[in-house]
Design a protein around this nucleic acid. Structure first.
Length: 577
DNA sequence: GCCGTTTTCGGCCCGACTGTTTTCAGTCG
């Protein structure tokens, strides 16, 4: 009999995060940090926090001491936390909403609530339009105008956007800045350099001896709608698309320190600064400095800073304070899969089902990318909405692929395949006799997302038992910013995948990135191997492979963990074993 | 509330920008 100790890690973490937010609003010092640290550790824990609690090992989680361990146990047993309820009672209703507005922190939110009785953003807007904010102590006309502007921005701009949407925009700005005569070096920084799956705003770093010229050029780039902040080292603008871009300009000699600092993550940097303090140094965006002598120990390049702190250089994708500093000290950082390591794409659609291009067009585009092979995995009959192929049509497609390979120069191979549908009971929508003739069988869930966790887990495990299944496609079904993953016991799925030799897909489509970085790392930990695949529906989509590789890198994967970094003969052996 | 290459107690990351202030608090990243 299951008790409710299946509260997912993310829910436990969410409660602790809210406690941190409310404590911060109360003006409590240091505790918010402690709760956030514990929440982050639980969010990224490879195993279920409920299992850890059952073993009595909660206090072994970094950042979890006696007090927070007790609160976690309460959450696991009751599904809620009395301490949080009490905090909610204490904080005036709505203050939390107000702090989400740019420029309003805990102090201003409390003042607005206490003095004006503001409860909602709508209340706040009414007070601002009536000119009642400017008379509060510590506020003025400009603050009032800024608050009204923040409300307008919050109504148009989305909170976060897909990496795949932002990356091209950021690269275009980077390119324009690099072309300025006054700019010496320029780099993307922040979460976009770390290739996080969603991005709040774009951070760019440049070096120059004429920062004012750079800032002027930046503030007048095409697409800039509003200048939010304008200084000599930092300028922030809002693009007409609602995307915020921050540019920092420093001198050349500080490039490494500034790049390290502005790349983050915040948690990674805090851990770095603690290492500096332990050596009686200081780390900031201008360098690693010995305060006793005022001399810079390092700062021109990133590697020098890591080296001075006794660490190997850490790839940006790993900088989340998830153990990378310890690994860098011990010399056990993974040799991350390179962006150029992919030799083929194992999940591609064509015009035969819902794709836009022919098999030959997709193959030609893949060849242009330097690939050696591509697997055509159109939907099967179960997905009528995607014009899935009947067994007869699929047999036709296999013959067509054979013809294309026969007529090719032999340097590129089209593999036959399918993305078959895993039915509600785990059965596949193609007969085994046909699956046996295909090179690559991807099996994915496309419907019935509301099943219970045990039903969904059983369903996927059943599909994996089929000897012909090589890969589980987009294993959690999530759609970033719109659909939550379905409930499934991933630990059980990963164990089975490792045992059966079934690959887990890291689907590189911009809105999926499924498995996620954290899930991929958990799977890696139990010996799972992967396919990183574009799920392309047209030629241009093949390029989103980059996003999947980024996710794999954030999940600590090496090339050897990914089947489609292997040359074709070796790939064939992996698929058949 | 956590934690220890200074520590089981006394610390806890650091600087830029803005606005309302006459020397600094609040906010952000």
């Amino acid at each position: 009999m299951e008790n409710h100790s299946r509260v997912p890690n993310v829910e436990v973490a969410a409660i602790l995060y809210e406690v941190a937010d409310l404590l911060e609003i109360k003006g409590v010092r240091f505790k918010p940090q402690a709760y956030r640290r514990a929440a982050l550790a639980i969010e990224t824990l490879p195993e279920s926090v409920a299992d850890v609690a059952r073993e009595g090992d909660l206090d072994e989680i970094p950042g979890v001491g006696r007090a927070i361990a007790a609160k976690i146990r309460e959450i696991l047993e009751t599904g809620s936390l009395g301490y949080l309820s009490a905090l909610r009672e204490e904080i005036p209703e709505g203050v939390q909403h107000l702090t989400r507005l740019e420029g309003i922190g805990p102090k201003k939110a409390i003042a607005l609530s206490r003095e004006l009785g503001v409860r909602t953003v709508d209340d706040l807007e009414a007070a601002g339009l009536a000119g009642r904010i400017r008379d509060l102590p510590g506020f003025g006309e400009k603050t009032e105008a800024n608050i009204l502007a923040s409300i307008r921005v919050s109504r148009t701009a989305q909170e976060r956007r897909l990496l795949g949407e932002i990356l091209p925009v950021a690269r275009e700005i980077e390119r324009r800045l690099a072309s300025l005569a006054s700019v010496r070096q320029v780099s993307l920084a922040g979460s976009i350099r770390r290739r996080k799956e969603t991005i709040g705003d774009v951070d760019i770093l440049a070096t120059s001896y004429w920062p004012d010229e750079v800032m002027e050029a930046f503030a007048t780039l095409p697409g800039v709608e509003r200048v939010l902040v304008r200084g000599t080292t930092k300028t922030s603008v809002a693009l007409s698309t609602g995307i915020q871009v921050d540019l920092r300009v420093v001198e050349d000699g500080h490039f490494g320190a500034a790049l390290q600092y502005f790349t983050g993550s915040k948690e990674h940097n805090i851990a770095m600064r603690k290492l500096a303090i332990a050596r009686n140094w200081r780390l900031n965006e201008y360098g690693l400095v010995d305060p006793a002598t005022g001399r810079a120990v390092a700062g021109e390049d990133e590697a020098g800073i890591y080296r001075a702190l006794g660490l190997a250089w850490i790839e940006p994708e790993l900088r989340e304070d998830r153990g990378e500093l310890e690994a860098a000290r011990a010399g056990t950082l993974p040799d991350l899969v390179g962006y150029d390591a992919i030799k083929g794409d194992l999940h591609v659609h064509t015009r035969w089902s819902e794709g836009a291009h022919s098999i030959e067009e997709m193959a030609q585009a893949a060849r242009t990318l330097g690939y050696e092979y591509i697997a055509i995995c159109d939907h099967a009959e179960g997905l009528r909405i995607a014009r899935g192929l009947s067994p007869g049509r699929l047999a036709d497609q296999v013959r067509e692929i054979e013809r294309i390979n026969r007529e090719s120069d032999g340097e590129f191979t089209v593999l036959s395949g399918t993305e078959c549908n895993i039915g509600m009971d785990g059965t596949l929508d193609l007969p085994d006799s046909l699956l046996a003739d295909l090179d690559v069988v991807v099996a994915s869930v496309h419907s019935g997302f509301k099943q219970s966790e045990s039903e969904m887990t059983e369903r996927v495990l059943t599909a994996m038992q089929n000897d012909h299944v090589d890969i589980i496609g987009h294993p959690t079904g999530r759609i970033l910013l719109s659909r939550e993953p379905y409930r499934i016991d991933l630990a059980a799925v990963f164990d089975a995948a490792a045992t059966l030799g079934v690959l887990m897909e890291i689907n590189a489509f911009p809105g999926r990135l499924d498995l996620s970085d954290v899930n991929a790392r958990a799977a890696l930990g139990v010996g799972v191997r992967f396919s990183v695949a574009s799920d392309a529906h047209r030629r241009e989509n093949l390029r989103c492979m980059e996003l999947g590789v980024a996710t794999a890198r954030r999940g600590w994967l090496s090339a050897g963990d990914i089947a489609n970094t292997r040359p074709l003969p070796e790939l064939r052996r992996i698929l058949r074993s």
